[in-house]
Simulated assay, not measured.
Amino acid sequence: MPIRTAVVPLSEIYELRWAVLRPGLPRESAEFAEDGGPHTFHLAAYEGEEPAVLGCITVFPDPFPAPHPLSAAAFRFRGMASAPEVRGRGYGAAVLAAATRESAARGARLLWCNGRTEATGFYKSQGFSVVGEEFVIEGVGPHLVFSREIQG
């Protein structure tokens, strides 16, 4: 069945974000300061017309943290997750592709994130490059900065 993506309210993706990215931590640990921003958007991935959210991502304008000519036109994504039962079936790639299209439509020319080090292979397969050194987010683990230029 094809993967469908849609821009949705935060409430639709929050449960998956919390369950996958912050297991064992309080629910509020999955709340991001950017969630309610005026230019923030959330995307969900579904299997066909089924209502269960199987992938999610949150995107917002945020200057790139290192010198870059496109820093002012950068969007950052956070909270990208796929349900464990569909990992490796394209849901992460689908929400990332939808986030790229939507970001470009909103004026972004650079897409970046603080991604888990263990996901390096995934990000590289999606055209992202590693920028800088590994760092640790307390309670979550080792991360790297990933970035990719995008077309409008």
Rank of each mutant, 00 (worst) to 15 (best):
P142C: 12
V20R: 05
G88S: 11
Y91G: 10
R89S: 05
P26D: 14
L96R: 09
P51K: 12
V140L: 13
F128T: 04
T40V: 01
A97G: 15
G121Q: 09
V136T: 08
R4C: 05
G48W: 10
V20A: 00
Y14S: 09
I3Q: 04
F75Y: 11
A45D: 04
E15T: 09
E12W: 08
P23L: 13
I150W: 10
S29N: 08
I13P: 01
A108C: 11
R22N: 08
W112L: 05
K124S: 13
Q151N: 14
G37M: 06
E102K: 11
L43Q: 01
G24D: 00
Q151H: 14
R27I: 01
L25Q: 13
E34C: 12
T40P: 03
G36A: 12
S147T: 11
F32A: 03
A93E: 14
R87V: 07
G115C: 03
R4N: 12
G141D: 04
F122W: 06
F128W: 07
F146P: 06
G152E: 15
A33F: 07
R106L: 11
E12D: 14
H143A: 01
G132F: 12
Y14C: 07
T58N: 01
G115K: 15
I150H: 11
Y46K: 13
H42R: 08
A94W: 06
A108D: 08
V131G: 12
F41D: 08
G127W: 03
E31K: 01
L25N: 04
D35R: 02
K124F: 11
P63L: 11
G132E: 13
P69M: 09
G79R: 02
A73T: 13
R148F: 10
Q126M: 13
F77T: 02
G107I: 13
E47Q: 15
L144E: 06
G48M: 06
E28C: 04
G121D: 15
R17A: 06
I13R: 01
A74M: 02
R116M: 09
Q126K: 08
E85L: 04
E85C: 08
T120L: 12
V95H: 03
Y91E: 00
T5E: 01
V145H: 15
F128Q: 07
A83M: 02
G24Q: 00
V145E: 14
R87C: 12
F146W: 05
S11I: 06
R148D: 14
C56F: 03
A108Y: 00
